[in-house]
Structure formats: structure tokens, C-alpha cells
Amino acid sequence: MLRVENLVKSFDGFLAVNGANLTVHEKQIVAVIGPNGAGKTTLFNLITGHLVPTGGKVIFKDREITGMAPHRICHLGISRSFQLINVFPQLSVFENVQVSVLSHQKKVLNMFAPAQKLVVEETYNILEKVRLADKAREKTASLSYGDQKILEMAIALGNYPELLMLDEPTAGMSPEETKATIALVQELAKKEGLTVLFTEHNMNVVFEISEKIMVMQQGRTIAQDLPDMVRANKQVQAAYLGEES
């Protein structure tokens, strides 16, 4: 479904991503892991069009999307959440999700219908899926950190993506919140038939839910395999333990 070939991104000569390769099949849950600064978030930004690659290709559903504008990539069926909370602080929880649903239904240029009465059901459906429906009318700022991270994901779901990309979905969460979130991601993937690509620093989470793991080190893909194979990979062990293989 998604194929990343030899992707390169340099910032003023610094190679943040230098030869990343990744294949994601439909309905797979795939994790991208690697030490801090390995280039995971940059890879995400390259796939979703927030950054333009210096070299390499991104292919989604047999179509090259390298360097396309983010809003166009989104409409092709990829949506994402962010590592740091990245929501609409002045809007209510409901409106936060409504924005992406409206965008998905191509209603953002409708100027004469009252927004309050549009896509209400769809938006509530999504909020119910992530269990935020009872907080729909609250201001975003009054949500707990964990709930804001969930809202972050709910916004991405509003685009009814085929490929959902989550950048550290549990970063900063308590163990209980992490557990609940992971269960939620698994449930969504199963029920909605989503393909999920995520980055994560919590290895328990990674090995618990992913069907495939891609490992990055210094901008390069050093392994891409089944969880057990990755666990046994000497190079990966070296990367994490800091030893020479």
C-alpha cells in the first residue's frame, strides 16, 4: 500500500534521513523505531508532504506522491497525528474533529450553510469511537493531556484514512493511559480495517501490537522485518545497546 524507496532529506548538508526504505501492506500495523534522532519524525513529515524529500520516492497505492502538498496527500487517504499536541486550541473538542470531517467531505468551501448543523452525526460517531463524546462541547484547553493526545488521533480519524500514521501516540501518557490507547488503536485497526503506521519509544507497546517493525539508525533503515526477527537482529541490538556487532 505504501512504499518508501531510498528516501533522503538533508537540512543544509545534515542528512536527517539518508536511505529510508519501508513497505506497508494493507491492514498491517507497522512500527517505525529507532534511537532518538534516528529520523523517525522526519520520515513521517516526508511521507505526509510537510517536508519535501531531497531524494528517493514515496509511493502510495501505486501512485507517486513524493513532494506533493500535505492537503493533497491527505485527500488520497493518509492522515496523521503529531508527537506534540497539535490541535485547534480555540475550538471546542467537537469542532476540532468536525474540521477534519468537513475537509474529508469536501465541504470546507461551503459558505452558506450553518456549520453547527453539518456532519454532526459523523463527528459524534468518531468521538464515540475514541470515547470523547461526553466532552464534545468542552474547550480543548480544558482536556487532560491524555485526552488531548486522543483528540489528536480523533482529528486524524475524521479524514476516514486508509493509512493512519501516529507519531508517538502514547508519548507522555501514564501506564494506564498508554494501555487504553494501545487497546484503542488495535480496536480501531480491526473494526475499521485501517492500516496503521506508527512510531513509538515504548518497546513493550511496539512488540505487543505491531505486525512488522522497521528500524532506523542515523537516518538509515537497518532492518525491516517481523517483530521476532527484529528482536533477534544483531545490528538492531547493536543500535540499541550501542555495541559493535
Binding site: 469542532e95 459558505m111 479524514n159
Partner: peptide, 28 residues
């Protein structure tokens, strides 16, 4: 009417967080 329409709502979203708007498919 315009500021209360879907366009108006998403315009405010663009004001608050342009980057996120791009990711949900809005041409900012």
C-alpha cells in the same frame, strides 16, 4: 453567515493551527 459556515469554521482552524489544517486536507 459566512463566518458561521463550514468555510468560516475551517478558516478559524487555519488561523489557530495552519500546519494541522494542511494535514487534515485543507488548502490553507
Amino acid at each position: 453567515i459566512i463566518v458561521k459556515s463550514p468555510y468560516g469554521l475551517t478558516l478559524q482552524a487555519v488561523r489557530d493551527n495552519p500546519q494541522r489544517c494542511e494535514s487534515v486536507g485543507i488548502n490553507i
